[in-house]
Design a protein around this nucleic acid. Structure first.
Lengths: 258, 258
DNA sequence: CAGTGGTCTAGACCACTCA
DNA sequence: GAGTGGTCTAGACCACTGG
């Protein structure tokens, strides 16, 4: 929409939106670098930086001697959408909702303490919510925070919306996050909330979020009802995939008694 | 190990291997750009390109005014590892194995035809194998190819190893691939082969591979036993994630009768 | 305030694709 | 052979971090 500050961002934004507006569809050649240089009154540097961005997003492919072409037109996911279910819903055009089950302050059990780099028994704040998509049960969310972060959650109405927004407004520095994706059967809690039988396959996303200095700020476990969510990603020959498949390690329980 | 042709590749390879050798651990600052320029007798361009590569791999983070620092040290996944289970095993230090169930040539059912951009009923080659990890059942693999590609599979002993290798050697141009990840319960076939009850949660990876011109070469459905595999990825604020979570669409059946 | 990485320019040469 | 993107150089200015 509005012009980005940096030239390379402006160029990237233009190309991205042109692709999403179907101005270019998969297989189509993009304008050449020299054309883009002229159109944006820029040198090659910013143009190539914009192309590199789209390439890592999986939107385009390029190579010596041939025009860069459109690969795919999946929407790009912002960092906010990665961290926040509410934000993801909004970006995807759905209405997020939540039904808080419990908000607790208590000692960290060993697996959680390890995940948050705390000593076992250190105080943590845990949130257990059912999340809704357009009003229907979609996901069971278990969030855990060290106390210094969690204090901002304790003083928050967790039925009123995005905890992530709350944390940002409270000045918590959320800088990067690691997601681990696997499948797991619904336990009794999951089953009750999602209204499915125990053992129903769920897509589990465990997330650890960190500050810029590497201190953990969150450890979470989200379980999606089948049919609600899936993940997609495009890999291109010669560009190593940032998504790594790893042989599973021992499960990290992010709620007690598992 | 051996010097890469391009300076930026050489620099990236050096940094990557230094991180994996634990010479730098998460939180550590990397050498400054100017140091790297001297060490590799290079200008800033190649150094910055190498940094950008590592950044998209999720290995480092950087920002104005501060040194680039190590984020994580997950192994990077090559394109071969994305496409080929055998290759993934080798990279991960496991012994791949397979027990072919069926190799068939027959007409494409509608969903498969759509996935391969063929007309319904067009001839396709399908492979149905149990894959092993260090000798134990790990994954059920369903591969489907258009006939022109699949002919190279029909004349191949599918118990002898990697079909992917075979296709490459046959000159098939596999240029990029899209993966969709979700969870699904084991069907009767899955259950029999993996020796688990029907309905056991499995991690499903559906893959579509394409030539450089966008023609489909493969449509597959891999289902991993829980505990065998999971996916991880690091996202950083300001860098949009290439992994997109999408609301699920109708299931594409990649084997008949589903 | 010195040093860092982010951005940008203006040029150059090369490997490659495609008509 | 004209045009393309990939690589590289040598400079410049700026925003920001940290001691």
């Amino acid at each position: 929409m509005t012009a980005a500050r940096q030239q390379h961002e402006e160029i990237a934004a233009y190309l991205r939106s042109a692709i999403h507006r179907k101005e270019f569809v998969p297989g189509d050649p993009l304008p050449s670098e020299s054309e883009l240089c002229e159109r944006f009154t820029s040198s090659r540097g910013p143009v190539r930086q914009a192309m590199a961005t789209l390439r890592t997003e999986g939107l385009i492919t390029s190579g010596r001697g041939r025009r860069s072409t459109v690969l795919d037109d999946v929407p790009t996911q912002s960092f906010d959408g990665v961290i926040s279910y509410s934000e993801w819903c909004r970006q995807s055009g759905f209405e997020p909702g939540q039904a808080t089950q419990t908000v607790t302050r208590g000692p960290a059990w060993p697996a959680l303490a390890a995940s948050l780099d705390l000593d076992a028994g250190a105080p943590v704040v845990s949130v257990f919510r059912l999340r809704l998509l357009d009003g229907a049960p979609a996901m069971v969310e278990r969030l855990n925070y060290p106390l210094d972060v969690g204090q901002h959650v304790l003083s928050f109405d967790t039925d009123s919306g995005s905890i992530y927004q709350r944390l940002i407004e409270s000045g918590v520095d959320i800088h990067h996050a690691t997601r681990t994706i696997d499948a797991i059967g619904a336990d009794q809690d999951d089953a009750d909330l999602l209204q499915v039988p125990v053992g129903t396959p769920l897509l589990r996303v465990r997330r650890r979020a960190f500050t810029r200095t590497g201190a953990p700020v969150e450890a979470s476990d989200d379980r999606y009802l089948p049919g609600t969510a899936s993940f997609t990603l495009t890999a291109t020959r010669g560009n190593p995939s940032p998504l790594t498949m790893v042989s599973a390690r021992e499960p990290e329980a992010l709620h007690p008694g598992a």
